[in-house]
């Protein structure tokens, strides 16, 4: 095997540009579906977790405990086990267990309870008195959720979403195991199994750059939205 030089690595990677671009698109697709599910299912779930806590608007100890237990249950699964054990469900939902859309199913499953907990925790930081003031003004529960809870916690919610995005960028690499594709998968197939170290290093560097960009955007957005 020839020694790797910077020039040879660069030539190699540029030759693979179409495949790399394909992998980036697959990763983006997996993440969008997973984060979408987290936002639209995990978000409301987190709000319900928060509102059913003792002392909150819809305090219900039993319901809260059962829901919390269920969330913990899904969160306990190692992701790779969730990935393979959800195969049959994925086949029903997507019609296949291979490809980025199929891999997005277990990703969503893991992302929903994760984001729900992040949302619950973020909402806890809102002072009780602010919610009480809205109640005293005659706000309905829906108005309290949309105008008080989400708006007051918006900076924290953006930070939570940033954390989630970065965690799941890394989870999505594992999805390559079931043919999910993506950047991480490319790194493993070419870099690890075919001993193309330059490809592996190149893909890891690409992920590093993507993570930095996501964190930068998340921080900027959160601090711009935070007026506290």
């Amino acid at each position: 095997m020839e020694p790797i030089t910077f020039a040879s690595a660069l030539a190699n990677l540029s030759m693979m540009a179409p495949e790399i671009w394909q992998a980036v698109k697959e990763t983006a697709l997996m993440l969008s579906i997973g984060l979408g599910a987290a936002l639209f299912v995990g978000g409301p779930l987190g709000i319900v977790l928060y509102l059913t806590q003792p002392g909150q608007l819809f305090a219900h100890r039993g319901f809260n405990a059962v829901l919390g237990w269920f969330v913990n249950l899904v969160r306990s699964f190692p992701f790779i086990i969730l990935l393979v054990s959800l195969g049959p469900l994925t086949r029903i939902l997507v019609g296949s267990t291979i490809g980025p859309v199929a891999a997005a199913v277990p990703l969503s499953f893991a992302a929903i309870p994760y984001f729900a907990r992040l949302v619950e925790q973020t909402l806890r930081e809102i002072p009780r008195g602010v919610i009480e003031a809205a109640e005293a003004m005659g706000a309905s529960p829906l108005q309290i959720i949309t105008k008080v809870l989400i708006n007051e916690a918006r900076a924290g919610l953006i930070s939570s979403l940033t954390i989630l995005t970065i965690s799941f960028l890394s989870y999505s690499a594992v999805a390559g195991v079931v043919g999910g594709g993506g950047i991480g998968d490319l790194a493993i197939r070419y870099g690890y199994y075919r001993f193309q170290t330059d490809v592996m290093v190149g893909m890891v560097l690409l992920l590093v750059v993507i993570v930095q960009i996501i964190q930068f955007i998340g921080n900027r957005l959160a601090s711009r939205l935070d007026k506290r």
Partner: peptide
């Protein structure tokens, strides 16, 4: 309640 205003010791304003 819309006919009963309330003022609080800790103000309880919406920070955002």
């Amino acid at each position: 309640r819309q006919n009963i205003g309330m003022v609080f010791q800790q103000f309880n304003l919406l920070a955002n």
